[in-house]
Lab assay of single mutants.
Amino acid sequence: RDEDEKEKIKEALKRGNEDKAKEIAKRANVSPEEYERLRKEAE
């Protein structure tokens, strides 16, 4: 379940949809550090 959320965040970031990614991260309680890591992976 947690991994699904992280995949959704990465997908949103790949599409350049940072607002959606942040919204998912907030809902999934993803830490800022984890969010940054996902953002780097998505580049």
Rank of each mutant, 00 (worst) to 15 (best):
I24V: 05
R39E: 04
E5K: 07
R1K: 14
N29K: 10
A25N: 01
R27H: 09
R15I: 11
N17D: 15
V30A: 02
E11A: 11
I24Q: 03
N29S: 08
K22A: 09
K40E: 12
D2R: 11
K26P: 01
E3S: 12
E18P: 08
E23S: 08
R1P: 14
Y35W: 09
E43P: 03
A42V: 15
K26D: 10
I9H: 01
N29T: 04
A21P: 01
K8E: 10
E5G: 06
V30K: 02
A12H: 11
K8Y: 06
Y35A: 00
D2C: 12
E36T: 04
D2P: 13
E3Q: 13
E23H: 05
K40Q: 15
A21H: 00
E41M: 09
Y35S: 00
R27V: 08
D2T: 13
E3V: 10
E5R: 06
Y35N: 00
L38S: 00
I9G: 01
E34C: 05
E18F: 15
V30P: 00
S31C: 04
R39Q: 06
E11W: 05
E5T: 15
E34K: 00
P32N: 09
K10P: 00
E11H: 08
V30N: 00
D2S: 10
L13I: 11
E11T: 07
A25R: 03
E7T: 13
D19Y: 09
K10Y: 05
K8M: 14
K8C: 08
K40L: 14
E33M: 08
A21D: 01
A42Q: 05
P32A: 13
L13C: 03
K6H: 13
E43N: 09
R37G: 04
K22D: 04
L13Q: 01
E41T: 05
P32W: 12
A12T: 03
N29H: 10
E36N: 06
K14V: 08
K22T: 07
A12I: 03
D19N: 12
E18H: 12
N17K: 08
K40D: 09
P32Q: 11
R37Y: 06
K22E: 07
P32E: 11
R15N: 14
R39P: 00
K22Y: 06
R1W: 13
R39S: 06
E41D: 08
K26N: 09
G16T: 01
S31R: 05
E3T: 12
R27N: 11
E41F: 05
A28Y: 13
E18I: 15
E7M: 14
Y35H: 00
E34A: 04
K26R: 14
P32K: 10
K20D: 11
N29V: 03
L38D: 00
S31Q: 06
R37M: 08
I9D: 01
A42Y: 06
A25Y: 01
E36L: 07
N17Q: 14
R27L: 11
K20E: 15
A42E: 03
R37D: 05
R15M: 14
K26T: 11
I9T: 01
I24H: 04
E33H: 06
D2A: 12
A25G: 03
L38I: 10
E41L: 09
E11D: 12
E41H: 04
K20G: 09
E11C: 13
E3Y: 13
K26G: 07
E7S: 12
Y35C: 02
E43K: 09
K40V: 13
K22P: 01
S31L: 07
E7H: 12
R1H: 14
L13P: 00
E11V: 06
K14D: 02
E43C: 09
E23Y: 05
E3L: 12
E23M: 07
E18V: 14
K10G: 01
E11L: 10
D19I: 12
K14I: 10
R39D: 00
D4I: 12
R27T: 09
I24E: 03
E11F: 04
L13H: 02
R39L: 06
E33L: 07
A42H: 04
E34W: 02
S31A: 08
E34I: 04
G16A: 04
D19V: 13
E3A: 12
K10M: 06
R15P: 01
E33S: 08
V30F: 07
K14A: 09
L38P: 00
K20A: 14
I24R: 02
R1G: 14
I24N: 02
K14H: 07
E7K: 14
K26I: 12
K6S: 09
D19G: 10
I24C: 04
I24L: 11
D4V: 12
K40T: 11
D4Y: 12
